[in-house]
Structure formats: C-alpha cells, structure tokens
Amino acid sequence: MAEDSAGHAATAEGFEQHRQRLKRIAYRMLGSVAEAEDVVQDAFLRWHQADRGAVRDAGAFLARTVARLSLDVLKSARVKRQAYVGAWLPEPILVTEEEPVDDVTLVLMMALERLSPLERAAFLLHDVFGMDYPAVAEAVGRDEAACRQLAARARRHVRDGRPRYAVGRERGQALAGAFLSASRSGDVAALKDLLAADVVVHSDGGGKRAAARKPVVGADKVARFFVHWAEKAGFRPARVLHAGAVDGLPGYVTEEADGLQVTAFDIRDGRIAAIYVVRNPDKLSHVGAFVAGL
C-alpha cells in the first residue's frame, strides 16, 4: 500500500513540473481557460495510465498528448462557435507586473482563429513551443513534410498578427489609462486623438450582456460608441480592479454596473489600432478569482 502511495506521488510530481507549459499549449490551442484545464487533467490521467518506463522524454510525451486532446476539442469547439452570439473572443489571461508577458498576444490568437485546427497546431507546436517537426508530426498524426506545409501556411496567415514594434509595457498602460479617462468622461476629441483612423472594436457579450454584435470600425464611430456607453452609465468613473497585461496586450479589468469587464488594446505606431472587450460572464469567472487574490 505504501509502495502504491509512493508511486502515485512520484507520478503526480513528474507531471506537475510540466503542468504550466501544458496549460499554455492547451490554452493557445483552444482560447478557453476551462477547456485547457480539462485537457490538462485528461492528459494527467493518461500519464498515470502510461508505461512511463518506455517514455524517454516526459515533456515531449505530455506535449504531444495535450496537442492531440486539444485538436479533438478544437474540432467540436469550432462548430459551437459558428452558433455563438456576436463576436467570439478568447477568454482573457491576466498577469501581474512581476510576471513576464506572454509572447503570444490576443491579436495573434485572433489570427489563429482563421486557421484550420491542424494548421493552428503545427504553427503553435513548432513556432511557439519549439517542438521539432518529427515531434509535431507525431502529435498531429501527419507526416513531417505535411507538417512543414501546415506551419508555413499558418505562418503566412498570422504574419500580420505580430506587430513589428511592440509597445513598451509602461507606455501601453499609459495609453490604456488615457483611453479609459477619455471614454468615461465623454470627451470625443480626446478619444479620437488616441485612435488610429481604421481602429476596430471587438466586443464579446456572448448574448448574455450588452455588446456590439459586429465589429465597430473607424475612429469617429469607435469614439462615439464608447461615449454612448459612458452616457448610459451616467458618465460615472469606472472602478479599476486591475491594470496590466491581458494576453500580452495593455489593458485593465473594470467593475461595471452589470458585472466585470476586461478591455485590451492593440497599439501600433503610437495609436490604438484595435480594442477587445470581453463581457460574457462565462469567460470571466477566473478573472474574478484573479482580482480577488491581488
């Protein structure tokens, strides 16, 4: 009995050292915190049942397992997203100032949404998580040449999702704060000064909270869109619960009259090029836990 307990403990310990990387792979594949956690837990069960003596590289084995499981989930998730009400955005991931900002931004994740599941897997596993092509081929069930083609196609599609010059953390948060102040005060002119001419807003309410069902495009329309929101709220200052990186972009969490809201900004050439607003409560339960723990 003691030997069984020791074996279970060793199995768990061997898995835990890889858990965070596995969660990153699953989340980047799926865009859902809950689904990523389920996939990682399923991978743990498979690790527990595996002949670990035959596994030469535990990290590679687990990464392949998570990739396969994520592919299965992604194929069914894409069908569900076709029936989603309004814009679909990934569940936001927040970090504190002490933590490193992930190199895969929300902008890049949105670009990944346009890829097939296999293209997405090949690109992420090779270009982001550093797996060689033989390992990618084993993970996705295609030969090595096919995986090279999948990754190359994906790379062409997502090239625009990687900004040429990433804005500094401090400057990005300053622009986010300036936007918040101008938008809640109803200052259209100040807002337009912060926005790129072709700025676009994506807001995700999931049909459960008020949000624009289609992207709002253009500096004038975007400025008036946010001023309209502020007007409906009586131009009350927002209660900021957290200001910091949201999936690699500057942003913040606010407490609105109807619940939590996460806003992130893609900043290019000193102006706000895109704004992502997540209001769907189903995507924000982990955000509430995050800010409660600050």
Rank of each mutant, 00 (worst) to 15 (best):
M1E: 01
S5C: 13
G7L: 13
H8Y: 15
A10R: 15
A10C: 08
G14R: 08
H18F: 06
R19K: 14
R21Q: 05
L22W: 10
R24V: 08
Y27V: 06
R28I: 02
M29G: 07
L30M: 12
V39T: 01
D42L: 13
H48E: 08
Q49A: 15
Q49I: 02
D51K: 15
V55Y: 14
L62P: 09
L62F: 08
R64K: 12
L74W: 00
K75P: 03
K75M: 14
S76H: 04
A77Q: 13
A77T: 09
R78Q: 03
R81Y: 03
A83I: 13
Y84C: 11
V85C: 05
G86D: 15
A87H: 15
E91N: 10
E97N: 10
E98T: 03
L106V: 04
L106R: 01
L108R: 09
M109R: 11
M109G: 04
P117M: 07
L118G: 10
R120E: 02
H126K: 12
F129R: 02
D132P: 01
Y133D: 09
Y133C: 07
A137F: 07
A139G: 03
V140G: 12
G141N: 03
Q149P: 00
A152Q: 14
H157E: 01
R159W: 06
D160S: 06
P163L: 05
R164Y: 01
Y165I: 14
Y165T: 14
A166C: 00
R169N: 15
R169M: 14
L180A: 13
S181I: 08
A182T: 10
S183C: 09
R184E: 02
R184W: 06
S185C: 03
A189C: 01
A189W: 00
L191Q: 12
D193V: 11
L194A: 09
V199S: 04
G206I: 07
G207S: 14
K208D: 11
R209P: 01
R209Y: 05
A212M: 04
P215C: 01
V216K: 13
V217W: 03
A219W: 01
D220N: 13
R224V: 06
F226C: 08
F226P: 11
V227R: 11
W229T: 03
A230Y: 11
A230H: 10
K232S: 05
K232F: 02
G234H: 06
F235V: 03
F235S: 04
F235E: 00
G244H: 06
P250W: 10
V253N: 00
E255T: 03
A257P: 00
A257D: 02
A257Y: 07
A257W: 10
G259A: 12
Q261Y: 07
F265A: 06
G270E: 13
A273M: 09
A274K: 10
I275Y: 08
I275P: 11
V277A: 08
V277Y: 07
N280M: 04
K283Q: 13
